[in-house]
Design a protein around this nucleic acid. Structure first.
Length: 249
DNA sequence: GTGGCATGGACAT
DNA sequence: TGTCCCTGCCACA
């Protein structure tokens, strides 16, 4: 489930639970060497797109990427035994367990800088530049549906957001990104930042604030707006969903 | 119980 | 462009 909005939410919750605390770090599964983290004080956590960084005082950061299948579990009682397959447990006043990430590694400041350097602006970060976001989108090669899930263009958008955002913008996913006007690109960025902020606060994709559990087109048979059969296609290697009537490019 | 797929992305080719 | 991977969920037997 992890697109950028959930990583930001997780970073904020993990920070609230653990920042300022020394943590016991372990890898019940054994696939991560937790020794360098064990006993360190967490200073905070932040997200860059779909990447999560847990910062440690006077030490490296723990870099986590959940991929498609990873998840965090939070245990208010830190003595709760971990379930199977826990790659990393950080236990302070609360325990956080990391399951099935694609990445769990330690990064020093240079490594963190390199990572951030591979990413485009993150619509959920206060330090994101809208100008740069617009420029990167409009100079991206290929369809807009590929560009906005390219983490080097915009960081944090995944397949579900792609479908819903392009519906809200009434853009056909296969429209060339380079054909968007400055205004269209800026509007899409604003829409993305607003929508994903709602999603972060709600803990799920929200594309209609009056019906937060509904989707317009994502994984639907028919468009929730007009009832037309939802069109699917492979865009950037993933299934895109769009309304053939309302998203004409 | 089993198999295929998936809200990602790295890497080989 | 294709392949592989870490697990959870669902449809189906």
């Amino acid at each position: 489930m992890p697109e950028g909005h959930l990583l930001h939410r997780t970073a904020s919750e993990l920070s609230a639970d653990l920042a300022g605390s020394a943590v016991a770090a372990s890898s019940p599964q054994g696939r991560f060497d937790a020794a360098p983290v064990d006993g360190c004080t967490v200073t905070g956590a932040e997200a860059y797109g779909k990447h999560l960084l847990v910062h440690l005082q006077d030490g490296p950061a723990v870099h986590v990427h959940l991929g498609m299948r990873g998840l965090f579990l939070r245990y208010p009682d830190p003595a709760t035994p971990p379930r199977g397959g826990v790659r990393l447990r950080l236990a302070g006043p609360v325990a956080w367990d990391l399951i099935a990430p694609t990445t769990c590694e330690l990064l020093d400041a240079a490594g963190t800088a390199r990572l951030v350097g591979t990413l485009g602006p993150d619509p959920l970060r206060a330090d994101a530049s809208a100008q740069e976001a617009v420029a990167r989108l409009r100079t991206a090669r290929g369809p807009v549906g590929a560009a906005i899930v390219d983490q080097a263009v915009w960081a944090g958008v995944g397949n579900a957001w792609r479908a819903e955002l392009l519906f809200l913008a009434r853009l056909d996913p296969v429209t060339p990104a380079s054909s968007l006007s400055q205004e269209q690109a800026a509007q899409l960025w604003d829409l993305t930042a607003r929508s994903m902020a709602l999603g972060r606060d709600a803990g799920q994709v929200v594309s209609d604030p009056t019906a937060p559990d509904e989707r317009w087109v994502y994984k639907r048979e028919t468009c929730r707006s007009c009832g037309a059969p939802v069109r699917t296609a492979q865009v950037a290697g993933r299934t895109s969903y769009s309304c053939p009537v309302e998203q004409t490019g």
